[in-house]
Write a protein that binds this DNA or RNA. Structure first.
Lengths: 233, 233
DNA sequence: TATATAAGTTAGACTAATCTAACAAATTTT
DNA sequence: AAAATTTGTTAGATTAGTCTAACTTATATA
């Protein structure tokens, strides 16, 4: 049985090694930053996780999940996203409120609870932020998503997820008129400060690169199954 | 903010001082027994809870909740029972499975979650075991319930709750054909070993005093609002 | 009332998860 | 390649919650 804390380490490690960057490994500082603890603390835990055969790790080297570790991480992520979906769909929580509560709910230990919740929600594939929900086997739909900042001017795309789950960011997303599955067109990207002009439902907004880095989209050609390297920078 | 452990102490203290016995105080050993820890451990925690003004307590004396402590305990109990109701009504959990999972869920910190869950369940007044669910203000319906072992022969009654929430006991209850809101008649109580004969839906069963001690009922006369002391031993 | 038993307390130790401060290794820059 | 910077490690301390073993106080009983 894994502790609350161990679960968080595995989940974070999984997120760091599964997102768009294609990285397979993570570092001590990076992990510390995401977990909100000091690198020294992470170092102690790495020894424990290694000893439990949940990670591969050598002194001064990079950290990678083992098969067992990955499975455990996927289970936590699955629970997190199912709970987010529950809160959003059944309990009228708003987009920006679900994450904080799901951080707690994801650690409830009961296989039956997860399975029944999944069924109750009718086996959802994506959570309210557009993230893939692993199924009972740990599998999930792969979608070639890129950040809005990677799009080229003139292309259209569909927002599918956000990278930042913090309330202030999500509130800003709503302000701009965006949301999961909303379509938009990239009108221009300024060469000097990378300010991006987008059009959503006929309304034109200007957003920063920082903002665009946190919005995941699928470009129009990808949706039509054309190879992606040609239209995403 | 209270810790997981502190919440458990307050909840247990509340349960020990609110049930049918009319006691207002508890002891160190008693608390240790119910929490599954050693008396020494309880003693340490009592100092902490006293310092936080959640209990009234003097060395070698009895333990009582303060107003603040009682309120906190009621909140945990409310969450526990709401979650039990959710698991039973919405996720198809059986009677004997809900308690263990609710022990974990009761510690989730989110006022909004509790309120929304309460609403989602349509403000239930009793949980699947028949226990009263405190409302948002900490109030709950009072019912004059007695144990089945307190009934007199010849009287009829309605089962409203169980005292023991363990799976083996609850499975036994089902075996006998009993359940919440089932009516039964006490046919006889044997003077030697207190074996009780009851009739449920025309079926006659014999149960031990130990069993009957864990079944809460409301007697027929009480249901008709006649004073209780005349018909319950 | 003297004594036996039950109930409660204390001291000292352990574990998990964290910290700070100092140190070591690896990487990047000039 | 030397210096500077970043990244990672170690040692020692802290806190919460738990334990055991020995002790003290209160209560019940002969």
């Amino acid at each position: 049985m894994l502790s609350f804390t161990e679960e968080n380490y595995l989940k974070t490690l999984l997120k760091l090694t599964m997102d768009e960057r294609g990285k397979e490994e993570a570092g001590t500082n990076e992990l510390a930053l995401h977990l909100g603890v000091k690198p020294a603390t992470v170092n102690d835990m790495l020894k424990k996780l290694k000893q439990k055969k949940l990670i591969q790790y050598e002194k001064y080297g990079k950290i990678a999940l083992t098969k067992t570790g990955r499975k455990a991480g996927l289970e936590v992520l699955r629970k997190h996203r199912l709970w987010e979906t529950f809160l959003y769909e059944k309990l009228e929580f708003s987009w920006d409120e679900v994450h904080q509560v799901a951080e707690q709910l994801e650690h409830i230990q009961s296989q039956k609870l997860v399975d029944k919740l999944d069924k109750f929600l009718d086996y959802p594939e994506f959570d309210p932020h557009g993230d893939e929900i692993p199924n009972a086997k740990g599998e999930f739909k792969y979608r070639h998503k890129v950040t809005l900042s990677q799009m080229e001017a003139g292309k259209s795309c569909k927002m599918v997820a956000v990278k930042d789950n913090s309330a202030p960011f999500l509130q800003y997303v709503i302000e701009v008129g965006l949301g999961i599955n909303n379509h938009m067109k990239v009108l221009s990207i300024h060469p000097y400060d990378e300010i991006i002009q987008i059009e959503v439902n006929g309304k034109v907004s200007s957003v920063s690169k920082k903002f665009a880095d946190n919005i995941f989209v699928i470009c129009e050609d990808c949706m039509k199954n054309k190879p992606c390297k040609f239209h995403c920078k």
